[in-house]
């Protein structure tokens, strides 16, 4: 390995160990790694935003004679009014505009992804059973899924106390959710362990050259 690569690998390994030291307790090595990471990443993002926003979305459109781009640019500049105590209130206008527009855009998308697609998917469970002439465990499985969906939806009813029949269905619903969360938890923990293994492999084989 050449010297520059050796130095880079050693710095990466030492920073990895500095971050791992947090498992013991907060210490100066962790503090150094933390501050370095925060500082470098903040600087990195300034450059990224300069080349992905300021140049292509502000400068170039104006250069191309698209003068209507001046409206969002002015709204952006108004955000800087926050720095002046007297003019701080001006920055509320671009914020209100941004939140209003983006919420309006987000809601139909959420509606499609979380309501319409769910409805389609639920009905598909039944139509697929017919189409594939499913039998036995597939039918039982699909019926369980459908009951689970309805019970889980009833858990998210906020207008009625969870007592009596509603309470029983909601209890079953949260049980279904917990089964799903448990599976998701186990799956992700395995993924995290693989990340740890990758870091250990880096320390042992790339840095220390074991094996």
């Amino acid at each position: 390995m050449d010297w520059p690569t050796t130095i880079a690998t050693t710095v990466a390994a030492l920073l990895t160990l500095a971050v791992f030291s947090f498992l013991y307790k907060d210490n100066p090595f962790y503090k150094f790694a933390e501050h370095l990471m925060v500082g470098v990443s903040a600087g990195y993002w300034v450059i990224i935003l300069w080349y992905t926003v300021v140049i292509p979305k502000m400068w170039q459109p104006l250069e191309a004679g698209k003068w209507y781009y001046i409206i969002p640019i002015i709204l952006g500049i108004l955000m800087w009014a926050r720095l002046n105590r007297k003019w701080q209130w001006v920055s509320r206008y671009p914020l209100a505009f941004y939140i209003g527009v983006s919420t309006g855009v987000a809601i139909p998308l959420e509606m499609k992804a979380k309501v319409i697609e769910q409805l389609n998917g639920s009905v598909d469970l039944v139509t697929t059973m017919y189409a594939t002439q499913a039998s036995g465990m597939t039918v039982v499985n699909n019926i369980l899924i459908l009951i689970g969906i309805i019970a889980a939806l009833i858990y998210f009813f906020f207008s009625k106390a969870h007592t009596g029949a509603t309470g029983s269905i909601a209890k079953f619903g949260i049980g279904v959710l917990m089964v799903g969360f448990g599976a998701s938890f186990g799956f992700t923990v395995m993924a995290r362990i693989s990340l740890l293994i990758e870091r250990l492999q880096f320390l042992l084989f790339e840095w220390l050259k074991w094996g």
């Binding site: 933390e34 925060v38 990443s41």
Partner: peptide, 19 residues
Amino acid sequence: YVTQEQFAYVAAVNGTMLR
């Protein structure tokens, strides 16, 4: 504001919690 880098942000918040 901390940073817009996921794990740098986490490192900073973790440090704040303990300190």
